[in-house]
Design a protein around this nucleic acid. Structure first.
Ligand SMILES: Nc1ncnc2c1ncn2[C@@H]1O[C@H](COP(=O)(O)OP(=O)(O)OP(=O)(O)O)[C@@H](O)[C@H]1O
Length: 714
DNA sequence: TATCATCGGGTTTTT
DNA sequence: CCCGATGATA
């Protein structure tokens, strides 16, 4: 009967069986945290403590949610219905749809993608006469997101969290943006959390509905939750306090998205008497891999401290390899050919991964794998629903479903080119504003009342008629037929067919794929919801393919063999991260390295190149400092530059060693008052070449590059 | 209004 | 080097 508990060690079992009260499972990589969470869910069901819909389970990605659903299915021998299992965003969206009117929306509100978000913000900035060259809309988008991560609505931002963006106009712009969203009956990604938390705070009925509904709460990857997510959890768990969070402070890698490791400490504070359970046996990796990872991460300060020892019976293993290669092309050849050998030796390619720091690094490997005919998949990368042609088609669909969705109207009104230009759009905008109606309705009205002249008039009339027809098609014959008809009749397909650029056939293929994807859904709104929330590519996991992804994307996964290329200063640790966040960022980069190494079950192969091709030509590189932080007795060195003492990056010995940046004296003098995009105003307190130590008025002392600041003497 | 040339700017990580 | 944004021309 309790078969499902058999696969657990005593500590894990404790974590599963302590069902009541707050539990924090704090444990290193590969100790079975996710397994604990899944088993705990099964345990709650099988001991009849709760029904599936009374357990709220939060995962970090949609993919992790899917996997957990499958594992549950296997564990219980049958699929489970009515689950509340998903990402924070997906779960909030579901709640918010139900209570949309209470936040001033209707239940069919749209969820903006980043592209629409950007366009909207830019419009708002232009309306406020802000120079978007000097103050990029992107920066404001980030700032607003940061505020939302912390749970601040416009008007609630504390003075020390305010922004110097556009001379202090950021908050007003934030307000304008929120107002505009509301009038569009739309929210952005951050709003899903922000509005829901606010609703829970202000509406006792909604709060108690969910507090009573969810008798147990489970949270995976707790170390990467941000403040607003924490508030959400705290509000929901406040009644019964049956909340179980699992996490690892050494794997916190999303601070740039507002994640706060401090949430781990807050948990014990806000849930007094929380039971903290530590898991120490790592079941994933061989002893050398584990030792290498542990030694590396020990260089971080202020860790919560966890012991980790091999838990596998076959924990002996090969040392971690460190391969020094001459350049990035050799690195690609080396990794591809080693993957090929593994493949020939009957290893599964699905157990091989290449994990990189930044997305662009995958390209070199792709080219090489293609030459050797090795099947691969890129996880993450540019996502299906973010491709231009898909977004265009989606805009048509959105407008079909929601005629008031102005952003979609603007996107497709002249796509394909119909001769509806700036002038015509200005007329439409003015009419819409004057009558306080959506753009689509305004166009209808203008056309009906004899607006526009000649060809333009006919074009718009034709377009409106088409939409009416497509809507009828949608009602009568369903979304798939409607989409096919619309793509054809709008001339959108023809546009790509006529396009003779090399990527056009791929785009047509993607559009076909979109039609196939749509067929899996019953209604158009369901599909649109899916598209808004599931940003990842659906991977056909069955195929035996090598995986390539960023280190961020690899969180929670495991592979037999893991390649970790590009361990060079500047790339990894990433220079920009270092420039922006100093030592804190360095530690986060180190955690990223820790995550990377601990993905490997049997083989970890780290490599670094002496020269790397970049957009500016060949760039010399020095080995990553993280290589120096690995335990020598757990490593095996190899590669064309094997004999070089690459561990002393600052001595030239075989490698052409160049300084990372040319040491250029800064033109900004000591004591100058300066302005920095991110940190605001401050005074220069030290100058070293092109690096400045600045005492910022709002964010304290930071070291930054002089090209990131401008003088602002008063 | 559409199209082409030129310019300048920028590569972190993603729900 | 490759993208997008911008501005002159058909
Ligand atoms: N008690 C156990 N006995 C044997 N294998 C186990 C046990 N617990 C977990 N494992 C295995 O160890 C591996 C790691 O487990 P899991 O992914 O749950 O760890 P995790 O702590 O979530 O890891 P990470 O934080 O690195 O993502 C998995 O392959 C899992 O099946």
């Amino acid at each position: 009967m309790s078969d499902y508990l058999a696969g657990l060690n005593p500590a894990q079992r404790d974590a599963v069986e302590t069902t009541e009260g707050p539990v924090l499972v704090l444990a290193g990589a590969g100790t079975g945290k996710t397994r604990v969470l899944t088993t705990r869910f099964a345990h709650l069901l099988l001991t009849k403590r709760a029904f599936p819909n009374q357990i709220l389970t939060v995962t970090f990605t949609n993919k992790a949610a899917r996997e957990m659903r499958e594992r549950l299915h296997r564990l219980l021998g049958q699929p489970v219905e009515g689950l509340w299992l998903g990402t924070f965003h997906a779960l909030c969206a579901r709640m918010l749809r139900r209570f949309a009117e209470r936040v001033g929306l209707t239940s069919d509100f749209s969820i903006l993608d980043t592209d629409d978000q950007f366009r909207l913000l830019k419009q708002i900035m232009e309306a406020a006469h802000i120079d978007t060259k000097r103050w990029p809309a992107n920066a404001l988008m980030t700032q607003i997101q940061r505020w939302k991560d912390k749970g601040y609505l416009p008007g609630q931002i504390p003075a020390n969290e305010s922004s110097d963006f556009a001379n202090g106009k950021a908050e007003a712009l934030y307000k304008a943006y929120q107002d505009r969203l509301k009038s569009l009956n739309a929210v952005d990604f951050g709003d899903l959390l922000l509005l829901m938390v606010n609703l829970l705070k202000t509406d006792a009925e909604v709060l108690s509905t969910y507090q009573r509904m969810f008798r147990y709460i489970l949270v995976d990857e707790y170390q990467d939750t941000n403040l607003v997510q924490y508030y959400w959890l705290r509000l929901l768990a406040q009644g019964h306090k049956n909340i179980c969070c699992v996490g690892d402070d050494d794997q916190s890698i999303y601070s740039w998205r507002g994640a706060e490791i401090e949430n781990i400490l807050k948990f014990e504070r806000d849930f007094p008497g929380a039971k903290v359970i530590r898991l120490e046996a790592n079941y994933r990796s061989t002893a050398p891999i584990l030792a290498a990872a542990s030694h590396l991460i020990a260089h971080n300060e202020g860790r919560l401290g966890k012991t980790l020892h091999p838990g596998r019976v076959d924990a002996d293993g090969e040392p971690v390899e460190v391969v020094a290669v001459w350049d990035s092309e050799e690195e690609a050849r080396m990794i591809a050919s080693r993957a090929e050998s593994l493949w020939r030796a009957k290893h599964k390619l699905s157990e091989v991964a290449i994990l990189v720091r930044a997305g662009f690094q995958t390209r070199a490997f792709e080219e090489r794998l293609m030459v050797l005919g090795i099947p691969y998949r890129i996880v993450g990368g540019l996502r299906f629903y973010e491709r231009q042609e898909i977004r265009d088609a989606l805009a048509y669909l959105r407008l079909l479903a929601l005629p008031a969705y102005d952003l979609a109207f603007e996107r497709i009104v002249n796509l394909p080119k119909r001769g509806v230009g700036e002038g015509a759009m200005r007329t439409v905008h003015e009419a819409a504003r004057a009558m306080n109606i959506p753009l689509y309705a305004a166009t209808q009205k203008l056309v009906a009342e004899g607006g526009f002249k000649g060809k333009l008039r006919e074009t718009l009339r034709g377009l409106l008629e088409s939409f009416a027809r497509w809507r009828e098609e949608l009602a009568l014959r369903g979304p798939v037929v409607a989409l096919e008809t619309l793509l054809d009749e709008s001339g959108y397909l023809a546009m790509w067919k006529a396009d003779k650029s090399p990527e056009a056939p791929g785009r047509l293929e993607n559009l076909k794929e979109l039609v196939r994807a749509l067929a899996d859904f019953e209604t158009l709104p369901q599909f649109l919801e899916h598209v808004s929330l599931v940003t990842e590519n659906e991977d056909q996991a069955g195929d035996d393919k090598l995986s390539m992804m960023t280190l961020h994307g690899a969180k929670g996964l495991e592979f037999d063999t893991v390649f970790l290329p590009g361990w060079e200063e500047g790339l990894f640790p990433n220079q920009r991260a270092l420039d922006e966040g100093g030592n804190k960022s360095l530690e986060e980069e180190r955690r990223l390295a820790y995550v990377g190494i601990t993905r490997a079950k049997h083989r970890a192969i780290i490599s670094h190149a002496a020269r790397r091709k970049s957009y500016a030509g060949w760039q010399d590189a020095i080995p990553s400092r993280f290589l120096d932080e690995l335990p020598e007795n757990m490593l095996r060195h190899s590669g064309s530059a094997q004999t070089q003492p690459y561990r002393q990056p600052h001595m030239s010995a075989g490698f052409p060693v160049l300084a990372k940046r040319p040491a250029r004296a800064s033109k900004i003098p000591l004591g100058a008052r300066v302005f920095h995009q991110k940190f605001g105003y401050g005074r220069v307190i030290a100058v070293e070449d092109d690096r400045l130590d600045i005492d910022f008025e709002t964010s304290g002392e930071k070291r930054v590059l002089d090209r990131f600041v401008e003088r602002h003497d008063t």
